[in-house]
């Protein structure tokens, strides 16, 4: 999959649509004996690896489950604090599954409005007058493309850096939005888009771009 995510942000910076089309990266499960040779820390209702990267377990990965039972925030399923639990030798050997934490819908909401502000900051920082906001943001592993319409709605696509044809895809998504969200009389403006037809057509458009093999030359 070369297109990872699609976000639609309304004029006020609220996230009104989000779609992920990637499958989460491989997760690693490993059995540990006492003492635990990986340093864990609690962060934002999650237990993260802070030091001791190895065997596919990376810094930043979160503890997803212990002995096959999913965690409940920072606690085990039966309500014990994970850090305390792992300090106790009687609980060993223990099998822990690690993985990259997926963004919760709340976090996505937050990030979207943060990007909304960054976009504004981008245009303010410009040394030239009349700069647009952030149109593209490039990292090692993905490129973020943002298209803002004249009415102020932002369409954001996260894609593989080598994926081409994103500009026309953004326009296409704008068309799909105007057709299947706005022309649905029961959709209220500025509100989250929960329209089956919008979903379907968006996925179709993503597939078309991906199937077209629009990777640039040399890939």
């Amino acid at each position: 999959m070369a297109i990872f995510s699609v976000y639609v942000v309304n004029k006020a910076g609220g996230l009104i649509y989000q779609y992920d089309s990637y499958t989460p990266r491989a997760e690693a499960e490993k059995t540990f004996s006492f003492p635990l040779d990986i340093v864990l820390k609690a962060h934002d209702e999650r237990i993260l690896v802070s030091f001791g990267q190895r065997d596919g377990i990376r810094v930043g990965h979160a503890v997803l489950s212990i002995n096959g039972v999913d965690l409940n925030g920072r606690c085990t399923a039966d309500g014990k604090d994970v850090i305390e639990y792992l300090k106790d030798p009687v609980n060993y050997p223990v099998s822990i599954r690690f993985g990259r934490p997926r963004l919760s819908s709340n976090e996505k909401l937050m990030l979207a409005s943060m990007f909304h502000s960054l976009f504004a900051i981008g245009s303010q920082l410009s040394p030239e007058v009349g700069s647009s906001g952030i149109e593209m943001l490039e990292t090692d592993t993905f490129k973020l493309h943002c298209y803002q319409t004249l009415t102020g709605i932002k369409f954001i696509i996260l894609a593989d850096p080598r994926q081409t044809g994103i500009d026309s895809l953004l326009r296409k998504i704008y068309e799909i939005y105007s057709d299947f969200a706005l022309k649905n009389p029961f959709y209220s403006l500025e509100m989250p888009i929960r329209c089956e037809l919008f979903d379907q057509n968006l996925k179709l458009a993503l597939e078309v771009v991906e199937k077209a093999g629009t990777f640039g030359p040399g890939s």
């Binding site: 709605i153 704008y174 939005y177 105007s178 706005l182 022309k183 403006l189």
Partner: peptide, 16 residues
């Protein structure tokens, strides 16, 4: 009108 404008902008290549 508030809905039609998006259709118009998406389909025509009119700028500001």
């Amino acid at each position: 009108g508030v809905r039609l404008i998006e259709d118009f902008l998406a389909r025509s290549s009119v700028g500001r």
